[in-house]
């Protein structure tokens, strides 16, 4: 926590809000930022490889996005526009608190609009709207090692990556098929990056895996507790592991979003009462709100449901 109160760094007070005066820009001290920045550069140069870094204690518990927050803090500049999503939503606790954290410590502009953001920090979703060149997507990662639950020893997993020996992962997917008749892994679905490293895409639903492939945005991954940073450069092949006779498939939903009527999006189930009532709505709140603002209506949308109204 010592980093929080450094006054010895020259601080152009004219450029940031009053609230930030007690903090260095974006909270982290400059030496920590340099260390993270060096790790980010190597991560981009070796797509999918997990670069160890000296993760710092942050003013939030592990599991609340400390890795993503440190990556964001190291990358963020005063002109960035920050969006934070938690399971696709801009308005849940984790997203709100991280957005406020950077509004307070960096004085940056924030937004809920995917289109307006230059940097998006995410917990477990990729926005439905295609990302564009120049945008940066920062993932919060709990367990960065895709082989960890198959091989607990770090020395061994490191060797497996060095040798590109990913047979174990295929065995795991095969056991899925043997047991369930299909590949039952639905989130944190392993991917191969640029034809070399097998990578954990963080616990995003496998629905989002195809969006990572040849994505125009730079994708950065930060795991705070596990102290790893990895990356996928823009326009890079990201292939979900599969078998010829059991090709990779994403989830599909039987009905469209109950609020905006979108088909082909990723839906959340919302329980409405204790008599089995439920609805399925877009997990990406910005996508859903934009569609409703454009006049789209789902089966359960209230009449005159104004854009931006909370559901």
């Amino acid at each position: 926590m010592r980093a929080a109160m450094r006054d010895d760094l020259p601080f152009p007070r004219t450029e940031v809000g009053k609230e930030t005066e007690a903090y260095n820009f974006a909270y982290l001290d400059e030496q920590t930022k340099r260390m993270i920045r060096r790790a980010i550069l190597k991560a981009i140069a070796i797509p999918g490889y997990q670069v160890p870094f000296a993760s710092r204690e942050m003013p939030m518990p592990y599991g609340w996005g400390t890795g993503g927050v440190q990556v964001t803090a190291a990358v963020l500049g005063p002109d960035d526009v920050l969006k934070v999503i938690d399971q696709g939503s801009d308005d849940t606790t984790n997203a709100v608190s991280i957005r406020r954290f950077f509004a307070k410590t960096a004085g940056v502009a924030t937004t809920t609009k995917t289109r307006e953001a230059t940097l998006i920090q995410t917990r477990h979703r990729i926005p439905e709207e295609p990302l564009r060149d120049g945008q940066i997507l920062v993932y919060q990662v709990p367990i960065p090692e895709p082989l960890r639950f198959l091989e607990p020893r770090e020395t061994e997993t490191r060797k497996l990556h060095a040798l590109a020996d990913y047979g174990l992962m295929h065995v795991k997917l095969y056991e899925d098929i043997a047991r369930h008749g299909h590949i039952a892994t639905t989130y944190a679905y392993p991917v191969e990056v640029a034809g070399r490293y097998v990578m954990d895409p963080s616990p995003t639903p496998k629905f989002d895996n195809p969006k990572m492939d040849m994505c125009a945005a730079l994708q950065l991954f930060g795991a705070g507790r596990e102290k790893r940073i990895y990356a996928v450069p823009p326009h890079t092949r990201v292939r979900s592991l599969d078998f010829e006779d059991h090709p990779f498939r994403i989830q599909t939903f039987k009905q469209p979003c109950a609020l905006c009527g979108a088909e082909g999006g990723y839906l959340d189930e919302v329980v409405l009462d204790d008599r089995g009532g439920r609805m399925f709505v877009c997990s990406d709140t910005d996508f859903c709100e934009e569609r409703r603002a454009a006049g789209h209506r789902g089966a359960m949308a209230a009449d005159g449901d104004a854009a931006g109204e909370t559901r």
Binding site: L9, P10, F11, P12, E15, N24, F25, E30, K33, R34, R37, I40, L41, I44, A74, V75, L76, G77, P78, L218
Partner: peptide, 12 residues
């Protein structure tokens, strides 16, 4: 603080 960020971002 800001110069280092800008230079890093350009290199990144």
């Amino acid at each position: 603080v800001f110069d280092a960020q800008r230079v890093f971002r350009a290199v990144m």
